[in-house]
Design a protein around this nucleic acid. Sequence first.
DNA 1: CCAGATTCATGCGACAAGCGAATGTCTAGC
DNA 2: GCTAGACATTCGCTTGTCGCATGAATCTGG
Lengths: 305, 305
Amino acid sequence: MAAMHVSHGLYEAFLAVARAGSFTAAAHTLGYTQSAVSRQVQSLEDEMGAELFERLPRGVRLTEAGRVLLPHAEAVRDRLAAARAELASLRTLDGGLLRLGAFSSATASLVPRAQAAFRARHPGVVVTRVEGPSVKHLGLVAAGEEDLAVVGPAPAAPPPPGVTLHHLLDEPMLVALAQGHPHAGRRAVRLAELADEEWIVGHERLEDTLFRPAVAAGFRPRTGLLAHDWIAKLGAVAAGLGVTLVPALAAASVRRDVALVTIHPDDVPYRRICAAAPSAPTVAATAFLGLLRETADELIPPTRS
Amino acid sequence: MAAMHVSHGLYEAFLAVARAGSFTAAAHTLGYTQSAVSRQVQSLEDEMGAELFERLPRGVRLTEAGRVLLPHAEAVRDRLAAARAELASLRTLDGGLLRLGAFSSATASLVPRAQAAFRARHPGVVVTRVEGPSVKHLGLVAAGEEDLAVVGPAPAAPPPPGVTLHHLLDEPMLVALAQGHPHAGRRAVRLAELADEEWIVGHERLEDTLFRPAVAAGFRPRTGLLAHDWIAKLGAVAAGLGVTLVPALAAASVRRDVALVTIHPDDVPYRRICAAAPSAPTVAATAFLGLLRETADELIPPTRS
DNA sequence: CCAGATTCATGCGACAAGCGAATGTCTAGC
DNA sequence: GCTAGACATTCGCTTGTCGCATGAATCTGG
């Protein structure tokens, strides 16, 4: 177990001396005295077990060992400088990595818009995005494997320790009908008008968004059909098998042969969308969170409290 | 002017903590106490201006900055280890560079043999060889730009400061005659028998090797022809234009239509061949010097004092 | 041939950095 | 609510490092 207490000053002194060709001159450029440089070089020589400089009456000259050590010392100095620069660029958002998570339908417009704005302002930051269910993202943020996540449909349980939820927006739901449906042309419907419809849901238990307002409207929706992704859901709607709820932000990506109808403000279901950030968020994560808020306010102005 | 007194211990502690995932465990593997590791990491964090670890109730976890720093710290550690290894291999002659110099005719057999032996024993050492006049090599060795040089024909001046000469051998000279010459078949000649010959010399002033024994033999050689290289010299001899002296070690590389005749021991000219080494020679230079001595003794046993 | 100047090495005193031991603080788990 | 585990902090003390001054060796100019 050798190599203890080896300070970088030793290598800096070595490099300065190698560059200047003299202890005294190197000491002057380093702001030290000549004796300090002399002893630093001696320490490094003891440490390395070899003479690094040949002492001449008029300065010093690198020995073979010194010539061998020189490129290594330069590489170490440069590498440390690179590390410092990279850390600094991390602070100023000129570099670094932002690991993002989002549930599937958040990637329709909210996350991509914020991501585009972020890319425009901080082109040096690499952004990775992973889709998946919200619960999974909450765990990843808690585990420190994601820096920020957009979660929605499961704020029921309290967030894991070390994760704080930031409310982004409450997304109104639209109802999707087949084009030939009687209500297809209307501007807005009451939820009660759809009490006899067959509702196509994703996960039976998670469709809290539907059930709560429906019960408030006085009926319990029939949920015979289960479809796990949007393709299947809207395909079933288009085929006239039933109706379903579509989040407003995903409206643009709905197929043409499906009609979207607004729900009356008094009983429109809302989906609460949050961002999950660790207790000590990254600079990039904080910046992205701000952009997420701006994007959310642009898409759906925060009229509700 | 930041970054003062940054010891490597900080990076070693950082790496150990990143590896162990805990200050306490890292302290145990490092042989330090937990408080020491805690402060070392804090020092590095202050130095870098960023938190490197996220403190959790059950250990620590790398932050973004820590993840960025980690590969740099590993690279620095590995580079320093490589430097140490290379310096060690320098000591044990398993690596390094030996910059050799030699005057032209020493490269006929003496230097190549020693070089072959050196290569066999220390294959890791790279050997570079430069040919040139002896005076030039003395200057290069003095200037530290060559590690060892084989010099011969100019030991008249004292060696430059910082250079010591090591006697290798005294090389007897042969006389080269055209094949049809009356003395061509003899085993040995007296120098006086060649008093009427035309002598072909290289540099008029430097042919001390010829003049001193000739004057001792009672004549002053006629030196009408000047030839600067061996090709021209021996070509002139073969053409019957005159005779010349050839060092014994170069005998094997003489063209066939030139006869070489030994000179009588009482008045044979000798050429003193030395090795020029710096005052503080490299390990490789010292080893090579030993092999030069061995090779010299094999080629011409040191019968003379 | 000798004195001045330059350069590196070294002894000395003072200051600060770093370590160990002990204590404080916070969180998880029973 | 209490104990155990992990990091942070405080307190002396050792140790390393710096600056100042001096010494030894060498080149240079008269």
